[in-house]
């Protein structure tokens, strides 16, 4: 098996194409969100743009959340005077059309109308305010933290990843994280991968991945990450808890065993052209083969 070819096939199968259903739906929602926010904050002019893995070009199909930044000018109180007010006013504006699930700095959008009630739209709106008139650094509110605001520079984050030269490795490691349920945040994982591969940018993908897993297996205790936008300021240690380090170490250990045995498909799965009718008939067959076993009926209550 040509491992790098296989890994490239995995990457391709994880690519959201521009004309695919998912991207179409995301773009439509993005326009909808922008319209709603502009209508809600008529007297000010926020910068509304794609952020996160979409602008970093590291999206994967397995978990394709779209981040939409909504940053207000510095000297403008129309969306709220305190950062906290901005966060809550944006939240309330979004509530007109969506079920809003507040995360720490972001607002997760889900369906509100009966036909899509509770459906996750895979969209996070991130409200913030520029720190000055250059409109580069922003303050983000943090709903669940003692340290109530975070100063960051989103563009530096985007550039750091987009121009890292290791985007393929980043996407594969993200996919590996998803398949194995590791609870590390994307931006922390990206920073670590970039740092770990800084002298190995021209190696084969296979070598890069094995190097990363070896690091996770052998040096998880000393793992750290520095915010590229604020290397001395924001402490990212909180995002690398003991639990997360344990997960990285244990899963990497198993993954290395698999790939040493040549079992790459255990790690990333088989890449098959997922024909819809194969899937549909397999599902029907799976259901009918269970029907005789008297399966339980699902239940729920408040």
């Amino acid at each position: 098996m040509d491992i790098d070819k296989y890994l490239n096939d995995v990457l391709e199968s994880q690519t959201l194409t521009d004309d695919g259903e998912e991207m179409k739906a995301l773009r439509k929602r993005r326009d909808e969100v922008e319209k709603l926010l502009r209508e809600s904050f008529k007297d000010t002019n926020p910068v509304i743009r794609y952020a996160g893995s979409f602008s970093k070009k590291t999206m994967i199909k397995e978990s394709y959340d779209l981040d939409i930044a909504c940053y207000f000018p510095r000297n403008d109180d129309d969306a709220g005077s305190a950062l906290k007010d901005i966060y809550r006013n944006v939240r309330d504006a979004l509530k007109k059309k969506y079920t809003v699930d507040p995360k720490n700095s972001a607002l997760r959008l889900k369906g509100l109308d009966a036909d899509v009630h509770g459906t996750d739209f895979h969209i996070d709106v991130v409200p913030g305010r520029f720190t000055d008139d250059d409109q580069k650094d922003v303050y983000l509110h943090r709903e669940n933290d003692d340290k109530l605001r975070l100063k960051t520079n989103p563009q530096i984050h985007v550039d750091h990843v987009r121009d890292s030269g290791v985007r393929d490795a980043i996407r594969l490691v993200k996919y590996w994280r998803e398949r194995n349920g590791i609870e590390i945040k994307t931006f922390v994982l990206e920073i670590i991968v970039i740092e770990t591969l800084k002298d190995k940018k021209d190696r084969k993908l296979q070598t890069q991945l094995q190097h990363i897993w070896t690091e996770f297996r052998d040096n998880s205790a000393s793992l750290s990450a520095k915010d590229p936008a604020n290397p001395e300021g924001n402490d990212l240690a909180a995002f690398l808890s003991e639990d997360i380090k344990t997960q990285l170490r244990q899963v990497s250990e198993k993954t290395l065993k698999q790939v040493d045995d040549g079992q790459w498909e255990n790690t990333f799965g088989k890449v098959t052209a997922k024909e819809n009718n194969t899937r549909t008939s397999a599902l029907a067959a799976a259901i009918s083969s269970r029907a005789t076993g008297q399966p339980h009926k699902p239940y729920a209550e408040f």
């Binding site: 009630h117 509770g118 459906t119 895979h122 998803e178 339980h296 239940y299 729920a300 209550e301 408040f302």
Partner: peptide, 22 residues
């Protein structure tokens, strides 16, 4: 992964978010 809506009709306990098999 946020794939199943966290609602009664999909047999998820809305408060705790876990699956209700029976």
């Amino acid at each position: 992964a946020g794939r199943i809506p966290k609602i009664l009709d999909r047999h998820i306990y809305p408060a705790s978010g876990n699956c209700c098999f029976f």
